[in-house]
């Protein structure tokens, strides 16, 4: 396993490039999932309020 580069003069640039990429990639992957979950939660609340309103009407 070649890990010499981690102590080399270019390590800073390599680490920064990979860290920035990881941050962007994770953000792009997580955002739609979190957004959809929030929408599903909203839908669930809407359904619940409709059910409660229907029960009151009865």
């Amino acid at each position: 396993m070649n890990i010499e580069w981690m102590h080399g003069q270019h390590a800073y640039y390599i680490f920064t490039a990979y860290a920035l990429t990881l941050a962007i990639v994770v953000y792009c992957a997580l955002m739609p999932v979190l957004r959809r979950r929030a929408l599903m939660q909203n839908l669930r609340l809407q359904q619940r309020s409709k059910t409660v309103a229907a029960r009151r009407h009865d």
Binding site: M1, N2, W5, H10, I14
Partner: peptide, 13 residues
């Protein structure tokens, strides 16, 4: 990152 050798001209960058 861990197996490929360094480039003869660019080094590890």
């Amino acid at each position: 990152l861990f197996v490929a050798p360094a480039d003869y001209l660019q080094g590890d960058s």
